[in-house]
């Protein structure tokens, strides 16, 4: 599977088809909005009993990307857990799984609106992280430059010969990059949404995830 290579603020990056961001120079993999423990939280709040397998699914894909890229650093860019209680309630097997993924890697948990505090798990906990010419934070800040964020779960839709193809997408312009949600069953916000149109400059690209990531002008 190919990645899509592009430049952000003088930094060469690769958008992977899985929805993860690869920064070759730093050997760094960044994923956003894992929402681990989502079914646990639904069960806790609504009483609906959903099988808690979405966490396994998300971790399986993450493990795959990690071994394929041999990443040395990992940033989980906020909303890593569906809420802090979900982080605490994560089953032992999944907790150990995460620990296993963290072996020999620098691991950063950036806080998100769903998980605004430290979690009882290895790795560093940060509100945001500056690295090289880039800043990693959960929610995009207007006016920021060289910023990588998540939060909005963007997706984009392209019409090709009468067929609408809609997929989670990376959005980037010269100043910022917004990552798609990596977690299983996290839903998406169409790139047409006002908030995304306001944030992103004219000339923004949307990179659709999938077998081969493909860039198009961001549909507005």
């Amino acid at each position: 599977m190919n990645g899509f290579s592009f430049n952000l603020h003088g930094t060469a990056l690769v958008a992977l088809g899985s929805g993860a961001l690869w920064w070759p120079e730093q050997q760094l993999l960044c994923v956003s909005d894992l929402h681990l423990g989502k079914t646990e939280r639904i069960a806790r709040r609504g009483g609906a009993q959903l099988p808690p397998y979405e966490t396994q699914d998300t971790l399986t894909r993450l493990e795959h990307d990690l071994s394929a890229t041999k990443a040395r650093k990992v940033i989980s860019l906020g909303d890593s857990f569906d809420d802090l209680e979900a982080a605490r309630a994560l089953p032992e097997t999944e907790r150990r799984w995460i620990t296993r993924l963290q072996v020999d890697r620098q691991w950063y948990w950036v806080e998100g609106n769903h998980d605004p505090g430290p979690v009882d798990m290895g790795g560093r906990h940060l509100q945001e992280l500056a690295l090289g010419r880039l800043t990693f934070r959960h929610i995009a800040r207007p006016g920021a430059r060289g910023e990588v964020s998540g939060h909005y779960h963007p997706k984009a839709c392209v019409r090709a010969r009468g067929r609408a193809i809609s997929r989670p997408a990376f959005l980037y312009d010269t100043d910022r990059l917004i990552l798609p949600a990596y977690g299983t069953f996290t839903g998406g916000l169409r790139s047409h949404a006002d908030v995304l149109s306001r944030l992103m400059q004219p000339g923004t690209h949307a990179v659709l995830t999938g077998a081969t990531p493909v860039a198009v002008p961001m549909p507005r």
Partner: peptide, 24 residues
Amino acid sequence: AEERLLAEEAARLMEASGLAQLAP
């Protein structure tokens, strides 16, 4: 086929928008 259609359409869109020249 969908990947191929998407690639074709993306190329067309990028060309039409002039972004193709800007992309690396």
